[in-house]
């Protein structure tokens, strides 16, 4: 009987806890500040550019960091910021990478960082948005639109809460003062694919 009684109490306590938890859940459990999963390396800044019009070359930046704030109730209040170390550019070819780092392209000795700071978010549906923000690259700041997709979110198997996005935009090299002339490759696709861990 004692056993039954205790169980009954536990149920009551659980019910109370649940009742208290419900309003919190309605505030949207996804909201919060998320740091990019740099340690686990679930973050990618990739670019894709035409090679002479014959094929696509993919490269990436290995060293960058960022965070986003997600507002579940009003996603348009969400924001994201990214800082990329331009010297970490990697196209899997040492001599080409050295050329990309020099004055002809990224000029990394003069402009060691590239940054993106969002200024507004326009939701299209639950998972899709246009994230507008200032992209600073090679010392030039321009407004760009990222087509962003909310890929997924939830508890991970190791006790953290995660959310991931993928977005892309197209940049004209000339817009950012890159002097090298590549007639068949005057623009590139920039892809940001990141997973954040809620803090």
């Amino acid at each position: 009987m004692n056993f039954m009684k205790n169980t009954g109490k536990s149920f009551a306590a659980a019910g109370l806890a649940l009742a208290l938890a419900v309003p919190a859940a309605q505030a949207d459990e996804r909201s919060g500040t998320y740091k990019f999963d740099r340690e686990g390396q679930h973050q990618f800044v990739q670019f894709r550019i035409s090679h002479l019009g014959f094929s696509y070359l993919y490269g990436r930046f290995n060293d960058f960091d960022g965070e986003f704030h997600f507002d579940g109730e009003n996603p348009e209040n969400s924001s994201v910021s990214v800082t990329v170390q331009t010297r970490s550019v990697d196209s899997n070819h040492s001599e080409r990478d050295r050329h990309i780092r020099d004055e002809d392209f990224l000029y990394v000795s003069e402009y060691p960082q590239a940054t993106f700071e969002s200024t507004s978010v326009a939701m299209h549906d639950e998972d899709r948005a246009t994230v507008t923000g200032d992209l600073t690259l090679r010392g030039v700041t321009r407004e760009v639109d990222l087509d962003m997709e909310l890929v997924g979110y939830g508890d991970d198997p190791w006790g953290n809460y995660r959310m991931g996005f993928e977005g892309h935009t197209t940049l004209k090299l000339d817009d950012f003062g890159i002097p090298e002339e590549l007639p068949e490759a005057d623009e590139l696709k920039l892809i940001l694919s990141v997973e954040g861990i809620r803090q």
């Binding site: 010297r87 970490s88 990697d90 040492s94 050295r98």
Partner: peptide
């Protein structure tokens, strides 16, 4: 080795 080409260069 990442960025070795920079140091060596």
């Amino acid at each position: 080795r990442p960025n070795l080409e920079d140091t060596a260069g």
